[in-house]
């Protein structure tokens, strides 16, 4: 079942600012969709349209089969929302805030209390449960906002920068919680963030938006193919003849030319079955290994390549696929630059 569907939605604010332009999305249930883009790209406006806070100027959308602009309260009953401007009450304690929002979502006091305490425990806020919100740090407020958004067990979560202001450990915990919600409870997560590293940890699909328009959408692999259909494989090998290098379509990598065993590229390396020695440089000189690289279309080609090198007497010390990270893809698309290679 589709959880979220938007059909060419456009939002033009009074004054003529076109915040979202012809946006079409389709999210499956249990999906964690990373909606990425720079400030002012239209991410928050999209969340507000999907939650019924704003009406689209053109197009239409549905969340769990409900039109948000026609029945916003029905959307609110099944969704949890975190945005920068959705704050809670400073004069109430963390738990009191959760009880208040629980009662608004129709939970009885006992149910809200046990659910609230459970969420506070999960988000490491148990000790601060009876502390007024005015004494909470930014990170604690952010985690409490997540607890508030989850108090009624929503089917869809709209999270606008949920990990902003969080320390790395808390961010990881929050990410783990979000991923578990999607995997175990089938909650659909619409995640707007700048923190691409965290997004890459939990999102199953991505949409990249700039100036209100969707630049690209898909899984990480699909996005990689969008920016570049091929990727580089780096191999450190010994007993390699120049003849073998040309026959297998390999070339000496830049790092080898500089007599360095370090991988110069800062792209994400997915080291599948590879290993690294403690002192690559020494090993390189002693064993006469070379750094080689080639470009392939898919990871399926790597075993064949390795097999060929080994069968022709070469020794493999390291193999890594230099796949563009989400950050690379993001910058490549938003800056309008050419693909990675």
């Amino acid at each position: 079942m589709k959880s979220i569907v938007t059909n060419s939605i456009t939002k033009i604010y009074p004054g003529g600012n076109r915040a979202v332009s012809g946006l079409s999305l389709s999210l499956n249930q249990g999906e964690v969709y990373g909606f990425l883009g720079p400030n002012g790209a239209g991410k928050t406006t999209t969340v507000k349209i999907l939650t019924g806070m704003l009406s689209p100027s053109e197009g239409n959308c549905e969340v769990m089969g409900i039109d948000p602009s026609a029945e916003p309260e029905k959307i609110h009953a099944i969704s949890g929302v975190i945005t920068e401007h959705a704050q809670m009450y400073d004069n109430l304690t963390g738990l009191e805030n959760l009880l208040f929002y629980g009662s608004l979502f129709g939970l009885d006091r006992n149910c809200a209390q046990s659910r609230g305490l459970g969420l506070l425990r999960q988000l490491d806020l148990e000790e601060a449960a009876d502390r007024r919100l005015s004494a909470y740090s930014t990170g604690m407020r952010q985690r409490l906002s997540l607890a508030r958004a989850l108090i009624h067990r929503p089917k869809v979560l709209f999270l606008d920068e949920p990990t902003s202001g969080l320390d790395p450990e808390s961010a990881r915990n929050v990410n783990r919680l979000i991923r578990d919600l999607a995997l175990k409870e089938g909650v659909t997560v619409f995640l707007c963030t700048h923190q691409l590293r965290y997004a890459q940890e939990i999102c199953t699909r991505y949409g990249l938006i700039e100036k209100g328009s969707l630049l690209a959408s898909g899984t990480l692999d699909e996005l990689r193919r969008t920016v570049s259909p091929r990727f580089t494989v780096k191999i450190r090998a010994g007993h390699i003849s120049p003849d073998m290098i040309s026959r297998l379509g390999l070339r000496r990598s830049g790092s080898d030319a500089k007599d360095s065993a370090e991988i110069p590229d800062n792209r994400q390396e997915e080291n599948r079955g590879s290993y690294r020695e403690g002192s690559d440089k020494e090993t390189s000189k002693e064993t006469g290994t070379v750094w080689l690289e080639t470009e392939v279309e898919s990871e399926e080609e790597i075993p064949g390549l390795v097999h060929q090198i080994v069968s022709e007497g070469g020794k493999i010390f390291h193999v890594s696929a230099c796949l563009p990270s989400l950050e690379d893809i993001y910058f490549s698309l938003t800056a309008g630059k050419e693909g990675l290679k």
Binding site: T51, A77, S79, H85, A86, Q87, D90, Y101, L104
Partner: peptide, 14 residues
Amino acid sequence: EKHTLETLLYCPLP
């Protein structure tokens, strides 16, 4: 002013 109205509007009340 305190940005709590938006949170209230996200509740399932007309």
